[in-house]
Design a protein around this nucleic acid. Structure first.
Length: 270
DNA sequence: ACCGGAGCCTGTTAGC
DNA sequence: TGCTAACAGGCTCCGG
């Protein structure tokens, strides 16, 4: 489900619902849902702790708790987080739930079971290898160039590497390359100066548009309240195979790169 | 060191 | 309609 804009949307929705809440208990029906530590230890360590703030790093949702603890969630493909009244009907795909004060519950459901929960004191252990955040001011065309120059593989594949750049996934990689008019199979370290500037601008533009439209509800993703985002109505190439390019009219093609569907316009991406 | 492919999972959809 | 195969927005591990 989620890439940077979707995860950012989730964080923004959960923040006012979680900050100030206290965790009273944790329930788990599928132990592997919790990556670290094991469930009994996680349960013991978070009981009584309070959410002090929420942030996002790459595609991780980071909950800062009292006592120096950090509760992280990765939604992977189909994860969904929501704060609901404890009396709200349950769903068979909720694998981990946090009972909060004031009768509410934070529920993590995930039909495909790829998503994970982490509890760490040291954030760097988990997040240290991630590349730069593409929407921060410090992310410049020169930074993009330095991140790409050691990668000769296809630019599409490189954009999905979270240690190169954080937060981009399959939708926004395809969209950014189309916006920048760059063919997805071009070697990452062979982009021209002008292309690097265009790609930098395109990455920021598509991610900002995705956030403004509260994410792309194409297959699974919905916001914490269950409603859809709007980015699916603004994509230029993603899952538009066989349809006309809005810019040049050529038919959008699909190829598989690094095992992932890749959509591009053969007319204006070179 | 790099690259492709399998694996993790279940649900939905496309095709016969 | 019903079965099967392909596919899914992520990421890690493994072997060549």
């Amino acid at each position: 489900m989620p890439e940077l804009p979707e995860v950012e949307t989730v964080v923004r929705a959960l923040r006012p619902q979680l900050v100030g809440r206290t965790i009273q208990d944790v329930h788990n029906t599928w132990p592997r849902h919790i990556a670290t530590p094991d469930f009994p230890e996680l349960r013991a360590r978070v009981q009584g702790l309070q959410f002090t703030s929420l942030s996002r790093r790459a595609k991780y949702i980071v909950c800062h708790l009292t006592e120096g603890e950090h509760l992280l969630f990765h939604l992977k493909m189909t994860g969904h987080l929501a704060v609901v009244p404890a009396t709200y009907p349950t769903d068979k795909h909720v694998h981990t739930a946090f009972s909060l004060d004031k009768g509410s519950e934070l529920r993590f459901k995930d039909p495909r079971k790829f998503g994970r929960v982490y509890l760490v004191r040291n954030l760097h252990e988990l997040l240290g290898k991630l590349g730069p955040e593409p929407l921060e001011d410090s992310f410049t065309p020169a930074v993009l160039q330095s991140r790409l120059q050691t990668h000769k593989q296809a630019i599409k594949k490189t954009l999905l590497d979270q240690t190169v750049l954080a937060g981009i996934g399959n939708i926004y990689a395809d969209e950014a390359l189309h916006e920048a008019r760059i063919h997805p199979t071009r070697p990452a370290n062979a982009l021209t100066e002008a292309e690097l500037v265009a790609l930098h601008r395109a990455i920021q533009a598509v991610l900002r548009l995705g956030i403004a439209r509260e994410g792309a509800s194409i297959t699974n993703y919905v916001k914490p309240d269950g409603s859809k985002g709007d980015m699916q109505n603004a994509v230029a190439v993603f899952r538009r195979t066989g349809m006309g390019c809005y810019r040049c009219g050529r038919v959008i093609e699909r190829v598989v790169l690094g095992g992932r569907s890749t959509h591009f316009c053969p007319g204006c991406q070179t």
